[in-house]
Each structure stands twice: as C-alpha cells, then as structure tokens.
C-alpha cells in the first residue's frame, strides 16, 4: 500500500515540475523535491526494494518487511458475511449513480465486502489512525496576494457546453426514478 502512495506522490511532484502554473501547491513541490532527491540518493545507495513511509522523520524503518508477504485469513476468523438488503442497494445505487442490482452485481459487491472483512482481524487497539502520508509535515501557508484568475476563456474552452461566460449544467439535481420505476426499466435483469 505504501508503495502505491509513494509512487503517486512522486508522480504528483513530477507533474508539478513540468507545469508549475497549473499546480497551486508550489510550496509543497519544493520541499517534496528536496526530500525526493535525498530519498533517491538513499535508494541508489541502499539499492534495495525497501520502501519506507515517504516524509517519515525516520529514514529507515526496520518494521517494514523487505518483501511483501501474503496469507489468506481463514473463513472462521471472519465475522459472519453481510447480506445487502434491497433498501441499502437502493441507497448505494442512488449515491453511486450506478445500477448494479443484478445477481452478478450483488455478488460482486458482497465479495468486495467479504474481502474488506479481513481488516476486522487486524488488531488496531491503541493505534492512532493515519489520515495522510503528510500528517507529520507542517502545512504550507500562502500569503494573501492575488496570483491567479482572469482566465475564463481558457477554462471555458474545456467545457462542452457554455453560454456567454457561464458553464452549462443540466437543470438542478434530477430526482432519480424510484426503485419500482427502475425495476421496470431494468426488467431484463435477473433480479
């Protein structure tokens, strides 16, 4: 998991180097770049695949295993499997704006929940949750001076529909059809 985060952060920094004007977060990118250089050196020197938490104050953490290991959790250690009631499916469909009430769709959702159930086995007592890999960094603050804006034309060019200098969106939030209506629409589904 850390691996992905690090990769993503690296990519973010690279983007910021290419087009600084697009990125508002100049302060970060500078500190990140410095750190990254240091880290790159470290990478080269140690020459291993060991990845520590980016921006962690400790450069090396022996708690992190050198290679990823994997062990499936036995079924009897997991909490009883969750079945999704129709009401909840309805709410999830509305929130996600995705219809998935087919047998296959529900099976997929239940499988995903079952997979996540393994997290219940992990003992997290006494461990403070981590919000972000940046949580021990100080927040970069900007002085209150105008540096951006006045680029309506460029921004509006990105939009398919515009009227004068406005973006155009569909009217309001369209209420979704009720479950019965949607059931009628999806009458070919297996449910």
């Amino acid at each position: 998991m850390f691996c992905i985060v690090v990769k993503r952060s690296c990519r973010g920094v690279r983007v910021s180097l290419k087009s600084c004007n697009l990125l508002a977060n100049d302060g970060y990118s500078i500190t990140n770049v410095e750190l990254l250089h240091r880290r790159r050196k470290h990478f080269l020197q140690s020459h291993n695949t060991n990845v520590t938490r980016l921006l962690s104050s400790r450069p090396h953490n022996s708690e992190v295993p050198e290679a990823a290991t994997w062990e499936p959790v036995p079924e009897d250690q997991l909490p009883p499997p969750v079945h999704i009631p129709a009401d909840l499916v309805d709410q999830l469909e509305r929130l996600a704006l995705v219809d998935f009430r087919t047998k296959q769709g529900l099976a997929c959702l239940e499988k995903a929940i079952r997979f996540a159930d393994q997290l219940h086995v992990v003992d997290t007592s006494g461990v403070e949750p981590m919000d972000s890999v940046l949580e021990d960094r100080s927040l970069n603050l900007r002085v209150d001076a105008v540096t951006e804006g006045d680029c309506a034309e460029e921004l509006l060019q990105l939009s398919k529909h515009t009227v004068e200098e406005y973006f155009v969106a569909p009217p309001g939030n369209i209420p979704l059809p009720t479950r019965e209506e949607r059931a009628a629409i999806l009458k070919h589904s297996e449910l």
Partner: peptide
Amino acid sequence: PNSLVSPFDATLPGTLPVLNI
C-alpha cells in the same frame, strides 16, 4: 462570470490546495 477562477477552483486535474494564511 468565471473571471475569478483559478484551475484549482475549477477542479482541473493536478491542482492542489494551498491554504491562505
């Protein structure tokens, strides 16, 4: 309209928030 908008305000990809002191 839309004259006081930065790429971040328009949520363009790659933009990040920087807090105003």
